[in-house]
Write a protein that binds this DNA or RNA. Structure first.
Lengths: 208, 208
DNA sequence: ACAAAAATTAAACATTTGTTTAAATTTAAA
DNA sequence: TTTAAATTTAAACAAATGTTTAATTTTTGT
């Protein structure tokens, strides 16, 4: 049972699901794109839905390990922690945007409640950790009295809004029709600078 | 050709598409829920895709007219204009959340490029208007030198993040499993206060 | 009340869907 | 090399899909 071939099918599935959605992608589409026989998907994963579950399970680390960097460094101020989180989120979401687009689509629908719950569980661990940092920052008077949960929603929401549509993103930012903003270092910088600047103004009790 | 029945089918379609997605909803699902014969959808709209187009066309006003309130009042400061925009967005998105969820899903996929372009066109009009307000506010030194486009992305992104999953939203905010946060006035207030407070800190050059 | 138009229905249509089968091929172990 | 297991294949499967048909009912205008 070659794990390499399974990973290849999963990677192809991520690309296709991001483009056409899970329901909009047929196993024949997927098999053709991955250059494998239609029966191979069921042979390796059992069913289309189990392939989806495997996809989430193997790639959930993109989300899960997001805070690991931070746990190493303990001698950081609360805002320095937030800076690291912002930088990690921007980098990881841009680097794995197809996967995050698939997750976004899946969160939007209510069919497949088990899968929905799995993704929510993974996300919540991050949210809780970040919320605790913000709450601690507020107690130490380093941060203003902000809404911790919705502050998190603003950070990730900004990224998801930009990730939502390449077409909208290009036209919104005045880029050429066919441009791929997501791979431009300049765009990553712009995105990071905006969120950083906004959170600095939003969070810090004593503006620098 | 009773417009009432067409609107009833469209309203049912919005609910179902929001729940299961466009591809995940069959015409038989839709017909059963709307309590009409399967053939009626094609009789009224021609095809499933044309129903979707009609859905967007008739409900796009939720997005399109968002700035009308503001155009009436001319004697507002730039931040007062932003306050009105925030209030309008929060209210309209919460009131028509199923429709916005469907739009969000459609923006995420790249099939149906024409429909994608239609939605993008409508959105861009609002974005342009808001960007111009922010740019003007910056020139008049009322606002700090922020990124106008990404500032808009943060406002709408916060709302979309919260709208994305009722389940995530409930668990994130510590609400009961089965709660419907979107209809709670308290939740609307919390959402509005957060965005208002964040934008105040983010935008205003001279903090109050 | 009548005839034409519009609306509604159940049934059938051709495709496409996810999945399974059974045979053929390749790989791995003895 | 031989044999069993794992992989790959093309074909077939039943179910579900969007759509159309043709008959029937309801509505509308005269």
């Amino acid at each position: 049972m070659s794990d390499q071939k399974k990973q290849h099918i999963i990677q192809t599935a991520i690309t296709l699901f991001a483009e056409k959605g899970y329901e909009g992608t047929s196993i024949r589409d997927l098999a053709k794109r991955a250059k494998v026989n239609v029966a191979m998907v069921n042979y390796y994963f059992g069913s289309k839905e189990k392939l989806f579950e495997a996809l989430v399970a193997t790639r959930a680390s993109y989300i899960r390990d997001l805070l690991d960097e931070m746990k190493k460094n303990t001698a950081m101020s609360h805002f320095e922690k937030m800076e690291l989180i912002i930088q990690q989120y921007v980098t990881r979401i841009l680097e794995n945007r197809a996967f995050f687009q698939v997750m976004q689509q899946e969160m939007l629908v209510t069919i497949r409640p088990e899968l929905n719950r799995n993704i929510t569980d993974v996300l919540l661990k991050n949210i809780d950790a970040i919320v605790k940092i913000i709450q601690s920052g507020i107690r130490k008077k380093e941060f203003r009295k902000v809404d911790p949960q919705l502050t998190f929603a603003s950070i990730i929401g900004t990224l998801q809004q930009v990730l939502m549509s390449r077409n909208l993103c290009n036209r919104m930012l005045g880029l050429p029709e066919k441009a791929d903003p997501y791979t431009h270092p300049k765009f990553k910088n712009r995105l990071h600078n905006h969120i950083h600047q906004m959170m600095q103004a939003h969070l810090l009790a004593h503006q620098p």
